[in-house]
Computed example of a mutant assay.
Amino acid sequence: MPRHAPASIEFRSVTKRYGTVTAVDDVSFTIEPGTLVTLLGPSGCGKTTTLRLIAGLEIASAGEILIGGRDVTTQAAADRNVSMVFQSYALFPHMSVLDNVAYGPKVQGLGRARAHALALEKLELVGLSGLGNRSPSELSGGQQQRVAVARALVLEPEVLLFDEPLSNLDAKLRRRVRDDIRDLQQRLNLTVAYVTHDQEEALAVSDRIIVMSNARIAQSGTPRELYEEPASVFVADFIGNANLLPGDLLREEGDRAVIQVGALTIDLPRRGASRGPVTVAVRPDAIRLHGTQPSSPAIQAQVAKAAYLGGHVEYTVGSALGELFAVDRTDRTPMPVGAPVWISFADRDVTVVPR
């Protein structure tokens, strides 16, 4: 178990400028002790700079940064009790696995025997017992990632940071290693800030997600809140590849509304919208494709693309509402390109996007 209790992280109106470029713009958030919070967004949105500000690898131009309630805004990285797992792993190729993990404690003045004992303990924790004498080049990508995690944990930090930790792994390993990281975080009650551009990865590992866009926070919340109640068109599109469709709010009924989308009339939570044009986000799984015209109202369309992916078929269909992306998990036989189809919506995963 870590010697230090997990610490909170707090940003108070933090800004980071590089000359005339603002990389982080007036950002405020709190990461509670013992939680895993993901900074999610496209390249250049400010998420990695935010992580480096937590680590002390960058110093804020304005605002305050607190770790465990202590103001660390101007402290250097060496003075913060924070460890970081880099995208590249940054293992020393000429050192054994054991010496890689023991390096930090040795630099901090611990004797060789004690440093090695701590390193062996952390290697066991990440499932690498017995591999201490190997060199990093003799390990798989997933094992190298675990060595990097063990090397960060051996310093027993208050906060653990991950910068795109799965980007160098193949698809199968990504799932396994992300599950390992989440399990370790929960078992050890660690405070973790985790950076990724992969929305599925963020949904899978996070207690909360902070979505960033253009150096600011677009929305923060639980994975379910962000997926089911996106606060903007950007968030709806970035998390879950929503189809963004024009609608017309016909009637307000308390906190619900009757909305016309093409030939369909649907009842949805109003989410602050009022009568007139609205944007409706429809998840790919919420689009129902019918090979023959159903008796209930439906939107006519035509199959433009069909891709068989084993457990489901992905479709692009053309319609009067524009090009739509749909996922069919019920029928694994793809409909032919050019085939006429009719579209209806499921009862869930359809939401009004606030203006």
Rank of each mutant, 00 (worst) to 15 (best):
R134D: 00
L51C: 03
S61P: 03
A346I: 13
Q186V: 11
I65G: 04
S13M: 07
V211G: 03
R348E: 10
G247S: 02
A273F: 05
L169D: 08
V101Q: 08
E158G: 12
V149G: 01
H197N: 11
I259R: 00
Y315P: 03
P165V: 08
R146K: 13
A76H: 14
Y194I: 06
R80S: 03
R112W: 09
V97A: 08
L40M: 12
T74V: 13
I9L: 12
P340N: 15
A193F: 10
Y18G: 07
D26C: 11
S344V: 13
L110P: 05
D248R: 07
V72C: 13
D331K: 14
I181N: 09
T50D: 02
H94L: 04
G41R: 00
G69I: 13
R332Y: 09
E253L: 11
A218W: 03
W342N: 01
A60R: 07
R275Y: 01
D207P: 02
S28W: 06
L57G: 00
V195L: 06
R270P: 04
K305C: 13
H4W: 10
A346M: 11
P340F: 15
R283P: 01
F92M: 07
A76C: 13
I59K: 15
Y315K: 04
T265G: 01
S167F: 04
S319H: 09
R114C: 02
G41A: 05
Y103A: 15
G262F: 03
E32Q: 15
T351C: 15
G262H: 04
E201T: 04
G111D: 14
L125H: 10
L153I: 01
F234D: 05
D328K: 14
M84F: 08
R256H: 10
A286R: 09
R174H: 06
F86Y: 14
R112M: 09
L173K: 04
P297H: 15
R271T: 08
D163T: 03
L91D: 01
D183C: 12
A78V: 13
V177W: 14
R329S: 12
G46F: 02
L188H: 03
G272T: 06
R216K: 15
V337I: 14
V303Q: 02
R80K: 03
L324P: 02
D267G: 04
